[in-house]
């Protein structure tokens, strides 16, 4: 069964077409990585799928109960403490104050945040901790679907790996479904069950490839091999490292 399905979705910004003929589905407890070169419309696709943008045409079926979203920059409220930020989604969901505290503590523990850090403001936290707070904020609403929009691109390699492991533990292993947008094929190969490739000009999803095994169970060598094989032999991935900002104009 699909928890998210996009059928011939089209989107345009002020008349300029960005997405066309998008067919994409995400199954129950499945994490799909969406890769594609910069500016091809990945973020737009996620926002359309999540309902933040109205598609120009097409049909979107959402079977999940509740989604959460993790963005490239943590998007934390600077005036609220880490705990206040984690509680943000709960506040919007009008969860009573009493239950909020327990849920915040639970989510913070999942994201491996120290209780001592919960009283700090975002300016007092490191980049990695801020992204943890963003992850905890998403987990706190107990979503069954999570949209990730290149959440770890700004982090250094070691930190990114730890964050990926965190996502594998809290989402993939916990049976959550998700759409993980990235332009790092290696990241996709670690986290996802399946990798889909978006066309360089947003004209449809070119195709997808299943990944062997479960996300947490792949060894580093397996991941490397898969990425190496995909880049050298699979025509689907030929263009994903194309970078041409001029196309944007």
């Amino acid at each position: 069964m699909n928890v998210l399905a996009l059928h011939s979705v089209e989107h345009a910004y002020l008349g300029r077409s960005v997405l066309k003929g998008i067919e994409l589905s995400v199954g129950t407890s499945e994490i799909v990585a969406l890769v594609g070169p910069s500016g091809c419309g990945k973020s737009t696709l996620a926002q359309v799928a999540a309902g933040l943008l109205e598609p120009k045409s097409g049909r979107i079926e959402r079977q999940y109960r509740r989604h959460a979203m993790i963005f490239q920059d943590p998007s934390l409220l600077p005036w609220a403490t880490a705990a206040g930020n984690i509680a943000f989604g709960l506040r919007l969901a009008r969860l009573p104050r009493r239950q909020r505290a327990a849920r915040v503590a639970e989510a913070a523990a999942l994201a491996e945040l120290e209780p001592g850090d919960l009283g700090k403001y975002p300016v007092e936290l490191s980049g990695g901790m801020r992204q943890r707070v963003a992850i905890a904020r998403a987990l706190a609403v107990r979503p069954d679907f999570i949209y990730f929009d290149e959440p770890f691109t700004a982090l250094d390699v070691a930190l990114r790996r730890r964050m990926q492991d965190l996502v594998i533990a809290t989402c993939a292993d916990a049976g959550l479904a998700g759409l993980f947008i990235t332009h790092d094929l290696h990241e996709a190969a670690r986290i996802a069950h399946r990798v889909a490739v978006l066309d360089t000009y947003g004209a449809g999803v070119l195709g997808d490839r299943p990944l062997p095994g479960r996300p947490g169970s792949r060894s580093e060598a397996q991941v490397q091999d898969w990425v190496g094989a995909a880049l050298s032999r699979d025509p689907l991935f030929r263009h994903i490292h194309d970078v041409d900002e001029r196309q944007i104009a």
Binding site: A50, L52, M69, F71, S75, F88, G89, L92, A93
Partner: peptide, 11 residues
């Protein structure tokens, strides 16, 4: 970005 975030959480 904060507006977008709040919208993503259903505001």
């Amino acid at each position: 970005g904060l507006d977008r975030m709040a919208q993503a959480f259903g505001a």
